[in-house]
Design a protein around this nucleic acid. Sequence first.
DNA 1: CTTGACCTTCCTGTGACTGGAAGGACTATG
DNA 2: CATAGTCCTTCCAGTCACAGGAAGGTCAAG
Lengths: 151, 151
Amino acid sequence: MIIGDVAERTGLPAKTIRYYEDIGLITPLRGDNGYRRFRESDVHKLAFLGRARGLGFSIEECRDLLALWEDRARASADVRAIAEEHLRQIGVKIAELSAMKETLSELVHACHGDHRPDCPILNDLAGGRGPLVCGDQATSLEGVVGFTHPA
Amino acid sequence: MIIGDVAERTGLPAKTIRYYEDIGLITPLRGDNGYRRFRESDVHKLAFLGRARGLGFSIEECRDLLALWEDRARASADVRAIAEEHLRQIGVKIAELSAMKETLSELVHACHGDHRPDCPILNDLAGGRGPLVCGDQATSLEGVVGFTHPA
DNA sequence: CTTGACCTTCCTGTGACTGGAAGGACTATG
DNA sequence: CATAGTCCTTCCAGTCACAGGAAGGTCAAG
């Protein structure tokens, strides 16, 4: 089975499959022509990775999960610990996004959205003051959540 | 005002401020010693950027918002359009994360999480099949031992 | 004069790929 | 057999929004 077939079967782009080999998640064989030759076990690993990535697990988490998957003697607690930590991170992100949504939603609602220049959204971003009306101020960005932006 | 003061006042790291100059979001002056010299207007722009980034706007969205902020004749509708689009994207992201959370939460609850190896989480990621009980083997024995984790 | 804190530029690395160029391999057709 | 087209290979660069660090200049205090 060559990479194109595997891509079709797993739904993963060929580029991604090569990348997963690069970083050591899979180790397909090679044919005499230099083409990668995938066993069924490789395809299953890739399908596993596709699902885990689809649930938002990072590559490193996937690596751990894959190792646990291959370890017949693993404790399910180890798997659950990874999943719970990931679940917690998802919760944090949802909370951050919800806070953003709330604030932004209020601002959008307050903005009449017509041809006139007055805009509560910009006023808020400017710190509650009008545009370019520069006086002294002590900015308070202390409370801003350090949000890592999604892809 | 030099970069350290600005960093303290805005809460933005000096690295970030330099980066914002690099990509043309701000254009501070320069002193005789080569140090950046920030006007109040620069500080206000940076505070604006900090808040906009805190609400999850991308750099390019920030660039647009900044341009609108400086345009006294802008229509508030233009600002609202950007905000609404961003709001929509946030909603999509929240929906995706919520779906992940839901699925993962079910799996975590189904997993007893003890020393035993049986794990619904891995079973699900494996596609409903058990671990490594995948049918065939390679026609060649070469590489069967495979799958060594690189550093 | 030395120390140490600050500033400068430049280069590299991050995560998880994606796009593209250059070139070899395979398949089908004339 | 030649050729066209599609697949495969490797390698390099780019993405986004910075962060880390090296090498070196500047400034105020002791």
